[in-house]
């Protein structure tokens, strides 16, 4: 925890500096007749973020906050595994939406998650992997008229559009 506390504070300090630099693309001072410049609000807030990070780092060196004294690991092996699998599979799912669309990504994600992570039987996995995209299609595309991304699979949906829309 102790190392993670420092790493996070330093990373956020760098991010704050980046935000200050980006904010300063617009005026950050007072413009006569117009008031505060367009960059003033985010710039001074980013300065505030940086000050907070500096305080967290100072506390870390002085060991005055609970986490700066903690000897517990930030993530144990079990947590790393769960996090990597869950966040990793979600990342792959979002990335695959660009190619195979929501209706291709959902079943693949469910099959991986339920079979590999949950060891659920094929029958249950299959039912959910089919039902979830069907319900999603009818709710979003038909009821809400919101077209979800379909990637390369778009032409497969033309008959369905003709049928329901």
């Amino acid at each position: 925890m102790r190392v993670a506390e420092l790493v996070m504070a330093l990373a956020m300090a760098v991010f704050s500096l980046y935000l200050m630099w980006k904010s300063a693309e617009l005026p950050i001072g007072w413009i006569p007749e117009e008031g505060p410049g367009g960059g003033a609000f985010p710039f001074w807030l980013s300065v505030g973020m940086l000050v907070c990070c500096v305080v967290i780092v100072i506390r870390w060196f002085r060991r005055t906050s609970p986490l700066s004294r903690s000897t517990e690991p930030y993530m144990d092996a079990r947590t790393v595994r769960i996090f990597a699998l869950a966040a990793g599979s979600l990342f792959v799912m979002v990335a695959s939406i660009h190619l195979i669309g929501v209706y291709g990504a959902i079943p693949l994600f469910l099959i991986f998650y339920m079979r590999y992570m949950g060891s659920h039987p094929w029958r249950l996995t299959g039912v959910l992997a089919v039902a979830m995209p069907v319900v999603t299609f009818f709710f979003f595309e038909i009821a809400l008229k919101i077209s979800l991304p379909k990637g390369k699979t778009e032409p497969l949906f033309y008959p369905l559009y003709d049928m329901f829309l």
Binding site: A86, L90, H98, V102, M114, F140, P149
Partner: peptide, 24 residues
Amino acid sequence: PFTILAPIIFILCIVGGYAPTNSM
């Protein structure tokens, strides 16, 4: 089991988050 609920919620997040802005 959470291994059923979690992926369903993840999917709801993804499609629900896309709906208001239509933006990947």
